[in-house]
Write a protein that binds this DNA or RNA. Structure first.
Lengths: 191, 191
DNA sequence: CTTCGAATGTGATGTAGGTCACCCGACCAC
DNA sequence: GTGGTCGGGTGACCTACATCACATTCGAAG
């Protein structure tokens, strides 16, 4: 199946499993389809899975007391997303995940992940690598946040992910950059 | 030895090793002492180790083109620090690490870490856990950055790590919060 | 004791970005 | 068609914080 092949290729970049091991692993992943607008994780609910994006686009975001939205991540193909804080600490979700563009994902429950990591050392290696990549990327983003103004961060984002420009409405881009949509709108029009 | 016992206890919270395995692991860690002001990692140099803090305090920080400093992390006892981006991607360091308060640390080279992870599955599990913790914490900090004003973040920081108040000069606190020291100074005096 | 520099406080002024208000046009559902 | 919602633009005004300049305190080195 196509979706599983994509995940297999993704894992194979980092670690090596036998075909039997792949089949075993992949049997715990569930293919799911989401439509634009569909909610996947709701703040306050319990979370038991993480999601590997095959196609389409999800977003993970936080809503504060003033109902303002802050986007943690646009999850594009080959990316993973969930509320990892809730997932690892077994607490209620504090962030939301929903679907921005019709998506196909593979979902894996936290229990199954831990079980697979216990049974298959190479897979634990893979997940260590993956989390590490997320950690480094988040640190970079934090630094850019402290260091650079909105304009710079906007151009940085679009040069890294040009596809976002057409895929995602500007108010969501603004929520990712941590500015108001008005300010973002002024950036590329004036000057 | 005392330092090694602290690390052993730290690892034991997450995973289980036999005494022989502990001895083996710990033999790759090197005890080092640093004095206040001493530099541990310099941006531009190569990085080959990460550091587990036994006592004292280190900071990891970034210096931008205007020579402004941004602090990524105050590394207190039981914390790990390094330039993980450089360490994992084998690039030159882009951040610096130095010593804020006389410190004892255990250092581990990246090569040894990878080798130990390969040989000892439980240790790979430990490192996955640790990175995950850092990832979640950094995401939280990023959200707080987008969401909260300086005053809130200042109080959040001090309520979480009250010992910083006496240990660390205020200009470093400001560099962690991403504001000027003048603004921080005004926060607790006026009002 | 004196000198120096680091850490800190504080006033005056500048500015990036937020907030509010209102606008338009596109795309539905009915 | 009409009404509603969503994405997006723009003007007027506000505010949090930066920047610059200078003063003060205090501890370490001489």
């Amino acid at each position: 199946m196509k979706a599983q092949e994509a995940l297999k290729a993704h894992i194979a970049k980092i670690t090596t499993l036998t075909d039997e091991q792949y089949d075993y692993c992949l049997s715990f992943f569930k293919t799911q389809h989401f439509q634009k607008g569909q909610v996947i994780i709701t703040a306050g609910d319990t979370v038991d899975s993480e999601y590997f994006v095959i196609s389409g686009c999800l977003k993970s975001f936080f809503i504060n007391d003033d109902m303002k939205m802050f986007i943690l991540q646009f999850a594009m193909p080959d990316w993973w997303t969930s509320d990892y804080n809730a997932l690892y600490n077994h607490t209620k979700a504090s962030i939301n995940v929903d679907c921005i563009a019709d998506a196909t994902v593979l979902s894996l429950t936290s229990n199954d992940r831990e079980m697979l990591c216990r049974e298959l050392h190479p897979l634990e290696h893979f997940f260590r690598w993956r989390t590490n990549k997320g950690y480094v990327a988040t640190q970079k983003r934090l630094l850019s946040f402290m260091n650079n103004n909105v304009k710079y961060r906007y151009e940085e984002l679009l040069s890294q992910y040009p596809e976002l420009y057409n895929l995602v409405p500007k108010n969501l881009i603004a929520a990712y950059l941590g500015v108001s949509r008005e300010t973002l709108s002024r950036l590329y029009n004036e000057k």
